[in-house]
């Protein structure tokens, strides 16, 4: 069993004060196609403690990228926000085990 971070490069960033966006870059078209099947939106939702309906998923085949965007759990810079630029989110998602 491998983790997401072992098969692809994962980055996360704030997209305005209210959204986090995560980009998952595969090496090539074959890896990307495989990852599109192996990485379920539900797995991301479970880690982020959101429902799958709250997560927007984009498969950008021309770039071999899967993109997820979702509402920040805390608005950027609010007193209970821990990560101004949403940087650590990618590290956590990279640990998702793949079937």
């Amino acid at each position: 069993m491998s983790t997401l971070g072992e098969v692809a490069y994962v980055r996360s960033k704030n997209a305005g004060p209210f959204w986090i966006t995560v980009d998952i870059f595969s090496q090539d078209a074959k890896d990307h196609a495989l990852l599109c099947r192996r990485l379920r939106t539900e797995a991301v939702a479970r880690v982020m403690r959101l429902s799958p309906e709250e997560i927007r998923r984009f498969e950008i085949d021309g770039l071999h990228v899967i993109k997820f965007s979702f509402r920040r759990p805390q608005v950027q810079g609010a007193i209970d926000d821990r990560d101004m630029h949403g940087a650590a989110c990618a590290c956590r998602l990279a640990e998702i085990p793949l079937d």
């Binding site: 305005g16 980009d23 021309g62 965007s69």
Partner: peptide
């Protein structure tokens, strides 16, 4: 092509 196209994703919730 990759570096240019990929910039549409950056800090952007909707890549399209």
């Amino acid at each position: 092509v990759r570096t240019v196209f990929a910039h549409m994703l950056y800090e952007n919730a909707d890549p399209w």
